[in-house]
Amino acid sequence: MTIFLSALQHYAFCPRQCALIHNEQVWAENYLTAQGAVLHERVDSGVTETRKNIRYERSVHVSSEKLDLAGILDMLEHNLQTGTLKPIEYKRGKPKPTLIDEIQLCAQALCLEEMLNQKIDEGALWYQQTRHRIPILFTDQLRTKTLTIIEQVHRLLESGKTPLPTYSKQCKACSLFEFCQPQLFNNDKSISYVANLFTVQDNLEQLMDDA
């Protein structure tokens, strides 16, 4: 089962969100996803160009048969003098406290390495909110974390099961918040109510048997 690169970021953000989008085909826009879509339209609309011995290729399709992974990276910088390649990912907001973006970028590099049989040591993340590019080294630690996430996503999506919602502060930034309704689920007492009914019934039967 081939998974999309975007599924890795969805999983790192929330496994339930990942299953809803990629297994149940649920999607909804909010102002954050809309801004991201506009940004990528601008990035992806550009043509291939070369400046100062750097070739810039946009909307590059990548895949890995070994990892059953496929997707599109925003930009690939090819240094024509050294031959080095550098994947670049554009993001709407600002750097995150987690490795969500780094994992997606590293997965792109893993795909490129398999396709081109070439080691890729680093890439970069560009954030619209800060207008700043951050270099990302593909260390052994980041590669291991990325491979772990890829494996976990495969297991989740192949299981066909959607995790139950768990409310956290980041839920309000999710475009599927209204569909997921994690707060309502956490306040739902029906499961415990039904369980208590069976407990009461079992206790009554036990009393009758003892009598």
Rank of each mutant, 00 (worst) to 15 (best):
M75K: 08
C18R: 02
S59F: 00
M208G: 03
E151M: 06
Y31H: 13
I149E: 02
S190L: 12
Q81E: 14
C111G: 10
G123I: 12
T50M: 00
I21C: 05
N196E: 08
I191N: 03
A70C: 09
L164E: 03
K66H: 07
A34I: 15
K94H: 13
P163T: 12
Y193N: 12
D121Q: 13
V38Q: 13
T2I: 09
K169T: 12
T146D: 02
D140C: 03
N187K: 10
F4R: 11
E178P: 00
T146W: 00
E29Q: 12
P182A: 01
L184Y: 07
R58P: 00
H132W: 02
E89I: 07
T199L: 11
L142Y: 03
F179R: 15
S159N: 09
Y31F: 11
L125K: 06
L67S: 08
Y127D: 07
D101Y: 00
L207A: 12
K189M: 11
K161M: 08
K189A: 05
V153D: 00
K52W: 04
L8R: 09
N23K: 10
V60D: 04
G160V: 13
I72P: 03
T146K: 07
I120V: 13
S63W: 10
D140V: 09
C171F: 01
T84W: 05
Q206M: 06
L67N: 04
D140I: 03
S64H: 08
Q129W: 02
T33G: 05
A211T: 13
F185Y: 13
Y127I: 10
D210C: 08
E151S: 15
L147V: 11
L8F: 02
Q35N: 12
K96H: 12
S192P: 00
K96Q: 08
K94S: 15
Q129H: 06
R16L: 07
A7N: 01
